[in-house]
Simulated scan of single mutants.
Amino acid sequence: MRGDFARADGDLETARRRYDEAVRLLRSTPAIPQLEATLTTSLGMLAGQEGDAAAARALHDRALALAVKSGDAPVVGHALAGHAALAVHEGDHARAAVILGGAEAVRGFVHDPSVDHRRVADAVRAVLGSVEFSRCRERGRALRRDDT
């Protein structure tokens, strides 16, 4: 999404405009839970970057519910990365690493190509160090899908 590119570049104003445009377009089409979950995750990431923790939490919770409802494992993994970002904002880097590991397990593959997953993983690794990050991430990978 173009909003994701703008957000990755730090242009939050443009990101907000792009996401608002996407929301309008999505509302004019039949419901597609995967698209709504992905867009809601992006909006949650934006809210977090803007410093609105309450909005970020509400959006990430909604995104995860939509993703689970869709049954699309990569979308669920993406929504979980949003919850990992929340854990980073709350200062709980170990929990963020566990959630990232859970996201990888749910998706069924380790390397997520999304900018958000990499950004969150890099932030967590910088605080925990590679060894502790890997240990926590492995704990997340070992969780059952329902426990993630």
Rank of each mutant, 00 (worst) to 15 (best):
R17L: 15
D20F: 07
V120A: 01
R2F: 15
V76T: 10
T38R: 00
M45V: 11
L64F: 06
A123G: 15
R144L: 08
S42P: 06
D4G: 13
D146F: 08
T29E: 14
G44W: 00
G10H: 14
H89D: 09
A47R: 01
R7S: 06
A105C: 13
L12R: 05
R57L: 02
S134N: 14
R7F: 04
G140D: 02
A79E: 05
T14L: 06
H93K: 10
S28N: 08
A96D: 04
T148R: 07
F5M: 13
P74G: 08
G140M: 08
V120P: 03
R118I: 03
A73W: 02
A96Q: 06
H117V: 11
S114T: 10
A96I: 02
A63S: 01
R57Y: 02
D146L: 06
G91K: 04
R107C: 06
G108M: 00
L25Q: 13
F133K: 07
A31W: 15
R125T: 11
H111V: 02
P113E: 05
A8L: 02
A67I: 09
R27C: 01
V76E: 11
Y19A: 00
A65L: 03
A97K: 08
V76A: 04
R27L: 05
K69F: 15
A81H: 01
A126L: 02
V75N: 01
D52S: 05
A56R: 04
P30T: 14
Y19G: 02
H93P: 10
A121M: 12
D147K: 11
G82Q: 13
R125G: 01
A63G: 01
R137E: 01
P30L: 09
D52H: 03
L80K: 07
A84T: 09
L35I: 03
A53N: 15
T38F: 00
L59E: 07
E50F: 02
H78N: 05
L26Q: 09
H83C: 10
R62Y: 06
G48P: 11
E104D: 10
R17D: 14
G10R: 11
S134Y: 09
H93L: 07
A94P: 09
R118V: 02
F133I: 10
L35E: 02
G44V: 05
D9H: 11
H78G: 02
E13C: 07
V115K: 08
P113W: 06
L12V: 00
D9E: 12
H83N: 11
T41S: 04
S134C: 09
A37W: 04
D11T: 06
